[in-house]
Nucleic acid binder design. Structure first.
Length: 838
RNA sequence: GCCGGGAUGGCGAAACUGGUAAACGCGCGGGACUUAAAAUCCCGUGACCGCAAGGUCUUCCGAGUUCGAGACUCGGUCCCGGCACCA
């Protein structure tokens, strides 16, 4: 064995780069000095850098989480270097079915499990060296937090935006609870994948549909990822059209008692019965050859004829028994004729009224005018039941032919035909003209419809905040006074849900029996708890005031720090969380609690980290545990590697092999500082590269292009150390600052090695000198007749003539000039394209 | 079906407003140092033809606009995400 010390690499010799030691040292130092805790009241130039808070799973922190948090951390640190006071808080979204199910699975009470998970998360997060203000940490399960979640509910209640109704709801038989529409994916429960059933239960709802128009319109002005905005637009689902009135014919024959026996018709009604339909294609009304009502439509009973009653009853019963899933996925169209006819207000002709479950009660008016010629579903239905199909729209190519072997749904360049006085009008004009004319007869009104439904917030579960409502025998529904909040979630042992459709809290009489806050008489508590998405719909308001028990959020601090400057999170919350947070913010704004109505000025969805092209999952066994990598490579290397493996907004493939390149870069950085010379001149080329790098890294970080920022720093490192060159301190020092958002621990250590006494985080962002960015010589591309043939080195401000002269002076290029020069394309400093006659 | 995002070397990826495609990193090949290895440093590395000088081709496919297209326009294929009997 030879002497290891003498041949050991620099980074293992005394004073070498020891990630574990310096990371421990600086994390302790930051904590001791409160480096990550800004003075919220006095800090100048505030910047709120928020990341979506995690659900603290028992498995611990996932690389995906760390990827997102690191991306946010870099942005926050960058803003701090730019002179902002940066507030980067973190908390835990620890209530909800997720946590509860896991607790049930492990047989541990969530009261016990959740704090344990949180401790583990905090430990992992702290190892990553995030610039998080841990003094303002929060958990949604803390009564000091959910007291205010209940307060938020009461604000909505006060505004008349919270109401209870019996409704067909999505019931998950596995989780034994109601789900919001947003939580049903292709008919299955978002969490467990079980097919969802339809049940009728009394539920609390928020009137988010009242805000649909604003939620949609505001999107245009938000600086958000396009994918996220698009997902929200789809979800809100605006469609502009009209409601059109169809009068039922011979109403007296069909109106009357549904219980009339022995074929006797019931009493006669004098008012004409009207059916309102919603359509976006009023231009096709002349092709409306029948009407369809949803099976649950309230007019079904009034319209149906005696001869058809049995058949209709059977059909409606069967449709109701079907769960929402099969109804939405079944392709074959079924229906039943009511025996009644309505008058098409455009043609004046009678058309039959049908009932079919392809028409949904929840959307529009629950009734449609069917235009089989120009709607695929209507076409299919008309074929099945042999109903008339009329062409009323023709494209530019088929002028006279009227036959249709499929629904013709095009509109571009199409005109209306077979439509009386509207014939020849383009589709758009016909729509407007027809609605206007029908409106004049009170037979139509323009209407905007949204796909968005009201937000069902009731959950028949345990692990969530109880809804702060009391039912009094005398006073009815009474909100719990704000002064009596929180309504504490009782620590009960049998917290498991059952099939009864009521919360486990309903089994605890000692909890739900209470007195009425109004009259003092006997009362019952609401036993439903609220949706977890309510917890996360306002948490960003709480952070600044996490230590306050007298207010949900301090008005002065809120005014100063909100709305959030930068929000980063996963696009899986594009619809649910972000829409609810926007809604709650608007409501609190309207109630005078907030000065803004959009909570997140800028939002960026980060990409997904995959492994060998596949999403990481426990079942595939390809989950990366960050602990192990931080152990092996250090947090700085791991953070930087995560940011280097692909564009932040697209994610990337996690491969162990790639990490070594980043480690090598940090090793080289270390040695550059360690052996930097203080004497001698700095080199002009290196200096130019440095200033270019400062500019590029700044630009790139500002637009979250972290991978290219890192590449630029590596490039500079290569320039600075090319060959055997030993860098000068002045060349290295700014690089340490540029690296610091990515690799904060090594940056602090190197910064102090350079003799600096303040933290590198507060050293400011290095500035670049515009005049040093360009060389006095440039390499221009040379093309001959559009084909790249080489390059030419000329002075930076060379004119076209000078460049051409340089080309002709170079025999390797001049040989291509085989004839007279017809034309020259000259892009200063970039390229010369010489067009030669051939 | 509708909406959004993609497709570039062996691999992860760059190219901001149309101007030298493949920066940066991994991997691979060669060299220096070493008894040897590791580490480090240097050189090379899209494909094809050629001893070389050099040439030809190349950004999913097909057309187009342009002096010039990975980028713009039209048509098509495939992948990822959202919505979906929404009238």
């Amino acid at each position: 064995m030879t002497d290891i010390a003498s041949s050991a690499p620099a980074d293992e010799s005394p004073g070498g780069y020891d990630p574990a030691a310096i990371e421990r040292k600086w994390q302790a130092h930051w904590q001791a000095t409160g480096a990550n805790t800004p003075d919220l009241a006095r800090g100048a130039n505030p910047f709120y850098a928020l990341m979506m808070f995690p659900y603290p799973s028992a498995e611990g922190l996932h690389v995906g989480n760390l990827f997102a948090f690191t991306g946010n951390d870099i942005y926050g640190r960058f803003q701090r270097l730019q002179g902002h006071t940066v507030f980067q808080p973190l908390g835990y979204d620890a209530f909800g079915i997720h946590s509860e199910n896991f607790a049930i699975k492990l047989g541990i009470h969530p009261n016990e499990l959740i704090p344990r998970n949180i401790d583990n998360f905090r430990r992992q997060l702290q190892r990553a060296g995030l610039m998080v203000d841990w003094t303002r940490e929060l958990s949604t399960t803390d009564p000091r937090y959910y007291r205010w979640t209940q307060w938020v509910f009461l604000q909505l209640y006060k505004q008349g935006l919270a109401y209870k109704k019996k409704a067909a709801v999505n019931w998950c038989p596995f989780d034994k609870t109601v789900l919001a529409n947003e939580q049903v994916i292709a008919g299955a429960c978002e969490r467990c994948g079980t097919m969802v059933e339809q049940r009728f239960l009394e539920q609390w709802f928020f009137r988010i549909t009242d805000y649909a128009g604003r939620l949609l319109a505001n999107l245009d002005a938000l600086d958000w990822s396009e994918t996220t905005k698009s997902a929200q637009r789809n979800w809100i689902g605006k469609s502009e059209g009209a409601e059109i009135v169809f009068v039922v014919q011979d109403v007296m024959e069909f109106a009357g008692s549904a219980t009339a026996s022995a074929g006797q018709s019931g009493e006669i009604t004098a008012t004409p019965l009207e059916i309102r339909v919603f359509t976006t294609r009023a231009d096709t009304i002349f092709g409306a050859t029948y009407l369809v009502l949803a099976p649950e439509h309230p007019l079904v009973a009034s319209v149906v004829g005696d001869d058809q009653r049995d058949e209709v009853d059977r059909y409606v019963r069967d449709a109701g028994r079907q769960d929402l899933v099969s109804r939405k996925t079944t392709k074959e169209k079924t229906g039943v004729f009511t025996g009644a006819y309505a008058t098409n207000p455009a043609t004046g002709m009678p058309i039959p009224i049908w009932i079919a479950d392809y028409v949904l009660m929840e959307y529009g008016t629950g009734a449609i005018m069917a235009v089989p010629g120009h709607d695929e579903r209507d076409f299919e239905f008309a074929r099945t039941y042999d109903l008339p199909i009329r062409r009323v729209i023709a494209g530019p190519t088929h002028a006279g032919d009227v036959s249709l072997d499929a629904a013709f749904t095009e509109t571009d360049g199409c005109r209306v035909v077979n439509s009386g006085r509207f014939n020849g009008l383009p589709v758009g004009d016909a729509q407007a003209a027809i609605v206007t004319e029908l409106a004049a007869r009170h037979a139509a009104v323009p209407v905007v419809n949204y796909r968005l439904h009201d937000w069902c917030i009731s959950r028949q579960r345990y692990w969530s905040p109880p809804i702060p409502i009391v039912y009094c025998e005398r006073c009815g529904t009474v909100p719990v006074p704000e002064s009596q909040l929180p309504v504490l979630l009782p620590a009960i042992d049998d917290f498991r849900p059952d099939d009864s459709g009521v919360s486990p809290l309903a089994r605890h009489a000692e909890w739900y029996h209470t007195t009425c806050p109004q009259c003092g008489g006997p009362a019952r508590r609401e036993t439903d708890v609220s949706d977890t998405f309510l917890d996360s719909a306002w948490y960003f308001l709480r952070y600044t005031s996490a230590d306050r028990d007298d207010v949900p959020f301090d008005p002065a601090l809120t005014k100063k720090w909100l709305p959030v400057n930068s929000y980063i999170g996963g696009n899986e919350h594009a619809v649910l969380h972000l829409l609810y947070a926007r809604f709650v913010t608007m409501v609190l704004h309207d109630a005078g609690h907030l000065h803004f109505e959009e909570p997140f000025t800028r939002f960026r969805a980060h990409g997904l980290i995959v492994r060998e092209g596949a999403k990481m999952s426990k079942s595939k066994g390809n989950v990366v545990n960050p602990d192990q990598y931080i152990e092996e490579w250090g947090a700085d290397t791991f953070r930087t590697y995560l940011m280097f493996l692909g564009p932040f907004e697209e994610g990337g493939d996690f491969r162990d092999k790639g990490i070594s390149g980043v480690k090598r870069f940090l090793d080289r950085l270390w040695r550059s500082v360690q052996y930097a010379r203080r004497d001698g001149a700095t080199d002009a080329d290196v200096r130019r590269k440095l200033h270019q790098t400062i500019r590029k890294v700044g630009d790139d970080v500002a637009r979250l292009s972290y991978n290219t920022a890192i590449a630029a720093m590596m490039e500079y490192m290569n320039t600075m150390r090319s060959g055997e060159r030993v860098p000068h301190v002045d060349e290295v020092r700014p690089l340490v600052q540029l690296v610091s958002p990515f690799a904060p621990h090594i940056a602090e250590e190197l910064w102090s090695m350079l003799g600096e006494s303040v933290s590198v985080m507060d050293s400011g962002w290095p500035t670049y000198d515009e005049s040093l960015l360009a060389d006095d010589q440039v390499t221009m591309a040379v093309q001959m007749n559009g084909k790249t043939r080489g390059t030419v080195r000329v002075s930076t401000d060379a004119t076209q003539d000078e460049a051409v002269a340089a080309i002709l002076a170079d025999p390797a290029l001049a040989k291509y000039v085989t004839g007279p020069i017809k034309k020259v394309i000259f892009v200063k400093g970039r390229l010369v394209n010489v067009l030669v006659a051939q």
